[in-house]
Amino acid sequence: QETIEVEDEEEARRVAKELRKKGYEVKIERRGNKWHVHRT
Rank of each mutant, 00 (worst) to 15 (best):
Q1C: 09
Q1D: 03
Q1A: 02
Q1L: 08
Q1V: 09
Q1N: 14
E2D: 12
E2H: 05
E2Q: 11
E2K: 13
E2G: 15
E2T: 13
E2A: 10
T3H: 15
T3V: 10
T3S: 07
T3Q: 13
T3A: 11
T3F: 13
T3I: 14
T3P: 12
I4K: 14
I4A: 02
I4H: 04
I4S: 01
I4T: 03
I4W: 03
I4P: 01
I4N: 08
I4D: 00
I4Y: 10
I4C: 08
E5T: 13
E5P: 15
E5Y: 07
E5G: 06
E5S: 10
E5D: 08
E5V: 14
E5N: 12
E5Q: 14
E5C: 06
E5L: 09
E5K: 13
V6L: 13
V6C: 08
V6R: 13
V6P: 03
V6M: 14
V6G: 02
V6H: 09
V6Y: 05
V6N: 09
E7L: 13
E7I: 14
E7K: 10
E7T: 15
E7H: 14
E7Y: 12
E7G: 15
E7M: 14
E7N: 11
D8R: 14
D8I: 14
D8E: 14
D8K: 13
D8W: 05
D8F: 12
D8A: 15
D8V: 15
E9D: 12
E9A: 13
E9C: 04
E9P: 11
E9K: 07
E9W: 11
E9S: 12
E9M: 15
E9V: 14
E10F: 12
E10V: 15
E10K: 15
E10A: 14
E10N: 13
E10P: 10
E10Y: 12
E10D: 12
E10T: 14
E11D: 05
E11H: 13
E11A: 13
E11L: 10
E11N: 00
E11T: 15
E11M: 13
E11K: 01
E11I: 15
A12E: 00
A12G: 08
A12M: 06
A12H: 00
A12K: 00
A12I: 01
A12S: 06
R13A: 01
R13E: 02
R13H: 14
R13F: 04
R13T: 11
R13G: 07
R13L: 04
R13S: 05
R13Y: 01
R13V: 03
R14N: 01
R14P: 00
R14I: 05
R14G: 09
R14E: 02
R14D: 02
R14F: 06
R14C: 06
V15I: 07
V15M: 14
V15R: 05
V15N: 02
V15G: 05
V15E: 04
V15K: 05
V15Q: 07
A16S: 06
A16K: 03
A16W: 03
A16C: 02
A16H: 01
A16Y: 02
K17C: 11
K17L: 10
K17S: 07
K17A: 13
K17Q: 14
E18V: 07
E18F: 07
E18L: 04
E18D: 06
E18Y: 04
E18A: 03
E18Q: 02
E18M: 08
E18K: 06
E18H: 00
E18P: 03
L19V: 04
L19G: 11
L19P: 11
L19M: 02
L19R: 03
R20K: 04
R20Q: 10
R20V: 08
R20C: 14
R20G: 12
R20A: 09
R20S: 08
R20L: 04
R20P: 10
K21T: 10
K21Y: 14
K21D: 15
K21N: 09
K21G: 15
K21R: 07
K21P: 07
K21F: 13
K21I: 04
K22V: 07
K22I: 07
K22T: 07
K22Y: 00
K22S: 06
K22W: 04
K22G: 12
K22D: 05
K22H: 04
K22N: 03
K22E: 13
K22C: 05
G23Y: 03
G23V: 01
G23M: 07
G23R: 06
G23E: 07
G23F: 01
G23L: 03
Y24F: 02
Y24M: 08
Y24L: 08
Y24R: 06
Y24Q: 01
Y24W: 09
Y24N: 10
Y24A: 12
Y24T: 06
Y24G: 12
E25G: 08
E25C: 04
E25W: 04
E25A: 06
E25L: 07
E25P: 09
E25F: 01
E25V: 05
V26E: 04
V26Y: 02
V26K: 00
V26D: 00
V26T: 09
V26C: 04
V26Q: 02
V26L: 05
K27M: 09
K27S: 05
K27C: 04
K27N: 01
K27T: 05
K27P: 02
K27W: 05
K27V: 07
K27E: 09
K27H: 00
K27D: 12
I28H: 10
I28Y: 04
I28M: 10
I28A: 08
I28C: 10
I28P: 03
I28T: 09
I28D: 01
E29M: 08
E29S: 10
E29W: 06
E29V: 09
E29P: 00
E29I: 10
E29H: 04
E29D: 10
E29K: 12
E29Y: 04
R30A: 12
R30D: 06
R30M: 14
R30T: 09
R30K: 01
R30Y: 05
R30I: 03
R30C: 05
R30Q: 01
R30N: 01
R30E: 11
R31G: 08
R31A: 05
R31M: 12
R31F: 09
R31Q: 07
R31D: 05
R31C: 05
R31P: 03
R31E: 10
R31H: 03
R31K: 11
G32V: 08
G32F: 01
G32R: 09
G32K: 11
G32A: 09
G32T: 02
G32W: 03
G32S: 11
G32N: 00
G32Q: 12
G32L: 07
N33S: 12
N33F: 08
N33G: 12
N33Q: 14
N33Y: 01
N33I: 00
N33R: 12
N33T: 06
N33A: 14
K34A: 11
K34D: 02
K34I: 03
K34F: 10
K34M: 05
K34R: 11
K34L: 04
W35P: 00
W35C: 02
W35K: 00
H36Y: 11
H36L: 13
H36I: 05
H36D: 03
H36Q: 09
H36G: 10
H36A: 13
H36R: 07
H36E: 09
H36W: 08
H36C: 15
V37S: 00
V37A: 03
V37E: 00
V37I: 02
V37G: 00
V37C: 07
V37R: 00
V37P: 00
V37D: 00
V37M: 01
H38D: 07
H38K: 09
H38S: 12
H38E: 08
H38Q: 15
H38P: 02
H38C: 15
H38F: 12
H38W: 09
R39T: 05
R39N: 05
R39G: 13
R39Q: 10
R39E: 08
R39V: 08
R39C: 10
R39K: 04
R39S: 09
R39H: 11
T40R: 13
T40K: 01
T40N: 05
T40S: 01
T40A: 04
T40C: 03
T40I: 04
